[in-house]
Simulated assay, not measured.
Amino acid sequence: MQLIRYCIYLVLGLSLGGCIQPYAPEVLTQPNNFLVVDGFINTRGVTSIRLMRTRNLQDDSKIPVESKAVLYIEQEGGGRFPLTETAVAGTYTSAPLQLATGRRVRLYIKTQAQREYASDYVAAKATPAIDAVTWRIGPDGVQLYANTHDDTGETRYYRWEYEETWKFTSAFQSMLQWTPTAITYRPENIFNCWDDENSTSIKLSNTLKLTKDVVADYPLTLLPATSPKLRFRYSILVKQYALTAAEYAYWEALGKNTENIGSLYDALPTQLTGNVHALADAAEPVLGFVGAQSVTQQRLYIDRTELPTDWRFETGYDCELAELPPPLAPPVNPLVFFRDGTFIPVEMINGKYMYGTADCIDCRKRGTNVKPAFWQD
């Protein structure tokens, strides 16, 4: 995160501008180490909570996590459900839960330093089903939408997240591999791969001004007509959450803040009021809002055959093959040349190895060659 710099511009007949002096506001440089609570209480499944610490805007080091804490979900009037730290430090999960809609619950946290935190009690909400995830071709590409409704009229506030997955290939298909004793035929596929990406922007909508609790064609994301995600086959898994008015307000404010700084876990330019508090010191800032709701989801696929035939997709590669040995060059031992993995043999033509860089040949550099369990061709 770059330090903000302010410039004073002078106009003396001609426009002469320049930074007279960089200025770092005090709020940007003061040390901070506030607790960040990321997650929600899943009333119909596994609850996953991440605990982190804030960092200064100019600090580009790895986000610090809060490990070895004690967490549990507490029902008002009794009942506790523990969360256990996973192999990913700072991430805690519960067993699958079935919590009654309307029952008030909260999250309790005790850090390794024995500091206690808790979220406010909130009533567990039931999230309505997603009616449909749809898409339409427009002048700028493919626009995806979410559609939902609640016949009871009790939801009104909605949030969405999504996970994208797409198939791609490397620039060239390698038929050969290096081994310490020989160049042999390649048994493993490193040409076809899959990549994935989670949504980063905050997606919210409400139906307060509508007579019916219906969300129609909420725009989730736009895929440009040149997007490499659409080159072969694309999938999106949309997750929907029912929010309370207070939780909606928190996410709305968080969205405005992160539009300015670009990260959920840096110190924020304006103070957010969440619903997590330090039990021993009410003045201690804590970032996060822990809601309680079920989650509904729906998956959509888009195949290349469903898109205009004249669309040309970017590949992300700028690659060429070379030959070994090079023209008019002395012989080269291929076992030595390919040994460090910088280059990968592709095929042999007229007694010469055609090869390229690993970044161009091995698709695992950008994703995985293991087909996702959910993937449908």
Rank of each mutant, 00 (worst) to 15 (best):
Q98D: 15
S119K: 02
Q75W: 13
T91Q: 15
D120G: 10
P128G: 03
L51S: 03
A69Q: 06
P96Q: 10
E66I: 02
T127A: 11
T101R: 07
T54E: 15
K68N: 13
P128C: 11
A69P: 04
E74L: 12
Q98Y: 13
D120T: 11
K125E: 06
A126G: 05
D60N: 13
L99W: 05
L97Q: 00
P64R: 02
V70G: 14
I63G: 01
R106H: 12
R55M: 06
L57C: 00
Y92R: 04
A118M: 07
A87Q: 08
A113V: 04
P82E: 05
N56D: 06
A123T: 08
K68D: 02
D120V: 12
T91I: 14
L107H: 09
R115G: 05
S67L: 02
R103K: 09
T93P: 11
I109A: 08
R103F: 02
R55V: 08
P82C: 02
T91M: 07
N56E: 14
G90V: 06
N56P: 14
P128T: 03
K110V: 03
A100R: 15
G79R: 06
R55Q: 08
G77R: 09
K62L: 15
V122C: 06
Y108I: 03
G102L: 10
T111S: 12
Q114K: 12
K110C: 09
S61I: 12
I109L: 09
I109Q: 03
S119C: 11
R80P: 05
E85G: 01
Q98E: 10
E66K: 05
D59A: 10
A95E: 14
T54K: 00
A123W: 14
Q58D: 09
V88D: 11
S61C: 09
A126E: 07
Q114N: 13
N56Y: 08
Q98F: 14
L107V: 13
A95Y: 14
S94M: 08
D59W: 01
E76F: 15
Q98R: 14
T86H: 13
A118W: 00
Y108R: 07
R115S: 08
R104Q: 04
A123M: 09
F81Y: 08
Q112F: 15
L97H: 03
A100I: 07
R103V: 06
A126M: 06
V88Q: 15
G77N: 13
Y92K: 10
V65H: 05
Q112K: 09
A126Y: 05
A113K: 14
